[in-house]
Design a binder for these strands. Structure first.
Length: 424
RNA sequence: AGAGAGAUGGCAGAGUGGUUGAAUGCGGCGGUCUUGAAAACCGUUGUGGCCUCGCGGUCACCGGGGGUUCGAAUCCCUCUCUCUCUGCCA
């Protein structure tokens, strides 16, 4: 969530930045007015409470002196009534403001390119060599079928469309990829964690996924719990309601989980094979850091994600998302896309974002900042997340890029010790 | 899943419905003493909101939410979590 103080003090700035995101800025005006009324109400309520607190002390004193308190008590009954009403009104304001705030995205950083749609995203890096094939390339579905390593029909039989079944060397290669990526990110300084994949509503809210994206989640009504769309949710919640030690920052985690997405309303687009699935595997990177470091850390995280593709020898590009396309919680986003030789297009395999204090404010993740006068101030940490990487589309690119004329698939050198075989 | 017990400041642990934002101990920080350290002694030690340039004032917070009351850490309801016993299970 945004800082209400920022809206209070700089409403125009906030409105301008929302406009850059193609978001309607009118809501800010509404919140600004509601906040004003709310502050007045707080003042009124607290004055009443002060009166009550004083009278309560007096009553206690009078009782001790065996004086008659009937009049005083009946007088305070009215005050208490007023407090009750005032409190209720205040609670309504809080809820109304919060309901609006939950749908307002983070504000783009000044460095983010302006744009109206994803067409205005900027390619900032192109890496690796695009291969030339002197034979007709097969897509990952055909390759998967030929070698009996990917079985989308049976995946569908088990769980419906959008679920994959990995078999034999396919399953093994997936496991190899995951292990390889976890090891690499460990070397990059991320502590490996294995988290729950079913989380409470509270955890979802802390990560700012709910209520805005509730329909995109698998939801277990009986327990009011959600299947995570990304390990970001569970890793972020490791430190919910905590005050971190300044000297421990930055704190970095990597974790592999299954990720679950209903992808509501996305039918008909990229539904082939692995291009869009309801369950996929991902190694996630999360950094908790001091605010002044987050834009340096986001560059580091990006390099940690691309490092995997470099080692796998894949052709990829990095694009910086424009103001209209950055994620809800983010101020700045990079997407990493790998080339699909069969589809003849780029496939998103990672997204690296700086979410600044947007999530930490809701999740109450703070640290003690040392001030110049030797005092400390509790401040929200900045939180970054990135895929390092997601395997499903990576698998597409990997299989397609490494196919040979005889229909086999070469395993990249770095994966051989993990997979235990040289080719499929 | 059933029965019972519990949840209080960084930790441990008191707390008859009314000078309790909370005793006491430990820890932390500052100081006295000491060549230095330890010990001892003295002092200090939660978070957030609102008002204020500041001093400061004020409100809220004893697991979460609701209720009773002039007044709740204390009484009632409810949820969550922890512990013990039983059941089930990997």
């Amino acid at each position: 969530m945004l800082d209400i103080k920022m809206i209070r003090e700089n409403p125009d700035d906030v409105k301008n930045k929302l406009d850059l995101r193609n978001e309607d800025p009118a809501v800010i005006e509404k919140i600004f007015e509601m906040d004003k009324s709310r502050l007045e109400l707080i003042h009124k309520t607290e004055t009443l409470k002060e009166e009550r607190n004083k009278a309560t002390d007096e009553i206690a004193l009078m009782k001790r002196n065996k004086e008659n308190t009937d009049e005083k008590i009946s007088e305070m009954k009215k005050v208490s009534e007023n407090i009750k009403m005032s409190d209720e009104e205040l609670k309504k304001y809080d809820a109304d403001i919060d309901n609006l705030m939950r749908y307002i995205p983070n504000l783009p950083h000044d460095s983010v390119p302006h744009g109206k749609s994803e067409k205005d995203n900027v390619e900032i890096k192109l890496s690796g060599k695009k291969k030339k094939f002197d034979f007709e390339v097969k897509d990952h579905i055909q390759l998967g079928k030929d070698h009996d390593i990917l079985d989308f029909e049976r995946g569908t039989k088990i769980s419906g469309s959008g679920f994959a079944l990995y078999k034999g060397k396919g399953a093994r290669l997936e496991r190899a990829l995951i292990n390889f990526m976890l090891d690499e990110q460990g070397k990059n300084g991320y502590k490996e964690v294995m988290t729950p994949v079913i989380v409470t509503r509270e955890s979802m809210e802390a990560a700012e996924k709910v209520p805005k994206f509730e329909d995109d989640m698998y939801y277990m009504e009986k327990d009011d719990m959600f299947a995570i769309p990304t390990a970001e949710v569970s890793i972020l919640n490791i430190h919910r309601d905590e005050i971190l030690k300044s000297e421990d920052l930055p704190i970095k985690y990597c974790g592999f989980t299954n990720c679950f997405r209903r992808e509501a309303g996305s039918y008909g687009k990229d539904t082939k094979g692995f291009l869009r699935v309801h369950q996929f595997n991902k190694v996630e990177l999360i950094t908790f850091c001091k605010p002044e470091d987050s834009y340096i850390e986001v560059e580091k995280m990006l390099s940690h994600a691309t490092g995997i593709l470099d080692k796998l020898g894949l052709y990829y590009r990095v694009i910086e998302l424009c103001t209209a396309d950055i994620g809800f919680a983010a101020t700045k986003c990079y997407d990493i896309e790998v080339w699909s030789y069969a589809e003849n297009k780029w496939l998103e395999t990672s997204s690296v974002s700086n979410c600044t204090d947007f999530q930490s404010r809701r999740a109450q993740i703070r640290y003690k900042k040392m001030l110049e006068n030797n005092k400390t101030k509790t401040e929200f940490v900045h939180i970054l997340n990135g895929s390092g990487l997601a395997t499903s589309r990576l698998m597409v690119a990997l299989l397609e890029a490494n196919q040979t004329m005889d229909g086999n698939i070469e395993i990249p050198d770095v994966l051989k010790e993990y997979s235990g075989f040289d080719k499929i």
